[in-house]
Design a protein around this nucleic acid. Structure first.
Lengths: 329, 329
DNA sequence: CTGAAAGCGCTTACAG
DNA sequence: CTGAAAGCGCTTACAG
């Protein structure tokens, strides 16, 4: 019942090595044999066993994606889109996609990473860059497995896809200005992250271009409490702002909104510039300008880069930046 | 450099079959040998090659999850949470999780499914039930691979996890009534889906209990245009409704909201009962009661059921229903 | 308990 | 071009 390359060889009256060559499109099979073999294969719907092939080639035909455990609300959309797009791309390359998700509240652990590598579970990794926090892990990666970062990335010297942060931030802020806002503040993620620096810079670029001055900038890490507190403090100190540029996406936006709400301000009374778009923004009674990252494109690009590396043709361009589309809500 | 079971055997001065037994916790290894072997393994951080093991055991140690290609906004959250939870559960069982995502705008194709099965890429499948639309596919599944459905499910005779639809719908509707709404309509997904029937029934239960009559029920499929149109028509015909129970989740909610908005009604002027909760609802200027599905729990349950089937102890209880939590926004 | 051997289903030199 | 053979790194009867 179980179909293997042996059965096919028998049916085609050739050696299994010949069948193998035919399947893999290699030289060394006569045209007539090739045709006959492929016909039979199609007829009986034979597919080579992935484990056997992986073992023989020492290549699994799978890539992995490392994503955050906690993907709620806004950031859920981002990751679901990435996973979908990468899965499709892997499929195009006749590969499969393995999901690697750290434990609750944790980042990728050295132990987990080493298990993946030593077991040879995947040929390469796509990594949500914020998952990497230690240099040790970075070193293990660099040494033992091909990988590319996706999104926010603090290790800019490696393969990665990202968004044109400074430019997009500038564009968003300019739209806020065009809407008539004049006292625009900024609440950002961790100050030491390069992409945060870039976005804040873009924000300032726009103000300067328009001859405005910044109404203050606050930084915070991504923990819910920290973000809410940072935002609350900011509102306390800057009661006169009429708009806000948020130099971080996903849940961060909701955290700031929460602070805004509990500070007693009406959402409606303030203009908001955010990263990452979401269809729900259409229904928020609130003036929003969003930078929509081309998530699918970015994910596809990351996957393609990874396959190039795996296949031994690493792309010369290590860092791929995409423009965000500015969406008016 | 590459570590295999042979190296370990050499280091421990035993046969590799003995090492294998030690690793897999089988009988037939002296205590002293076992200890020595395991110590060495830990020391050199040896992990058996998954492909080799898979080939030898004809068991891949991987499960697959089939999810919709298009996971935007609201439904993105649902699937991201499911994937995360299933990945964690697979990990607990020392398995990995493979993502299978149909092409743009398509459901799971027979061809794809057969490739997965014939290639022996995974030991079992978790399937977003709405991915299955043909009886043919259902038959292939039933015959060739263990699987369990997650969420909305029209094939209730197979392993599945779901939400207590009727009861949750009743609870949501009761909360709307408690808020003072009296003219409550219902917009639902496809009428022939069993879970839609159940939710609509729960909606009616609540009205009856409160001595109210339904202000109309509309059905629609899940395509964006259909849903928007169905909702628009409904609003046209029922101008006097003050609340709406939506017997479907995810994007469906946004589609109805869109229709509501373009029909000229203020979101604020209407009460909304929805399936699937979302943190963003807190910021919608709108009276919302949501049934929050315990997504993580459901996903865990599905994964555990699948592993029981794979391991040859299929659970006696095929259908696992979870209560939704009622969230007031 | 212990280990030599066969086998899982492929691929890949290699000799013909 | 063709095929017999060895090998990928494990597991699993089986004989001792």
């Amino acid at each position: 019942m179980k179909l293997t390359i042996n059965e096919i060889a028998e049916m085609a009256h050739v050696a299994k090595s010949t069948v193998s060559k035919a399947i893999n499109g290699q030289k060394g099979v006569s045209e007539s044999n090739r045709q006959r073999i492929l016909e039979i294969i199609q007829q009986v719907n034979f597919q080579p066993n992935v484990s056997a092939r992986a073992l023989a080639q020492s290549r699994t035909g799978a890539i992995g994606i490392v994503l955050p455990h906690s993907v709620t609300s806004l950031s859920g959309t981002f990751w679901a889109t990435v996973v979908s797009a990468v899965a499709a791309e892997a499929n195009r390359h006749n590969n499969s996609l393995m999901v690697i998700s750290p434990q609750e509240g944790e980042k990728l652990k050295l132990e987990t990473l080493e298990a993946i590598i030593n077991r040879h579970s995947v040929d390469g990794l796509i990594i949500g860059a914020e998952q990497i926090q230690s240099q040790t892990i970075m070193n293990v990666l660099l040494q033992d497995i091909p990988f590319v970062f996706i999104g926010k990335n603090q290790f800019l010297d490696h393969y990665a896809v990202d968004v044109t942060n400074r430019k997009s931030a500038l564009n968003v802020t300019e739209q806020l200005i065009a809407r008539g806002y004049k006292k625009i503040g900024c609440i950002a993620g961790p100050e030491n992250f390069k992409y945060i620096k870039e976005r804040v810079q873009g924000f300032k670029d726009a103000l300067e271009k328009a001859g405005l001055v910044s109404s203050g900038t606050a930084y915070s890490d991504y923990k819910k409490e920290s973000a809410v507190k940072a935002a609350s403090d900011f509102f306390e100190q800057h009661k006169d702002i009429d708009a806000l540029f948020l130099a971080a996406g996903g849940e961060f936006v909701l955290n700031v909104m929460e602070a805004l709400k509990s500070s007693g301000r009406d959402l409606k009374s303030i203009g908001l510039g955010v990263f990452d778009d979401n269809r729900i923004f259409d229904f928020l009674d609130c003036s929003i300008v969003a930078a929509r990252q081309p998530i699918e494109k970015m994910a596809q690009c990351a996957a393609n880069m990874l396959f190039e590396i795996i296949n031994g043709n690493p792309p010369e361009k290590k860092y791929n930046c995409f423009d965000a589309e500015i969406i008016q809500h």
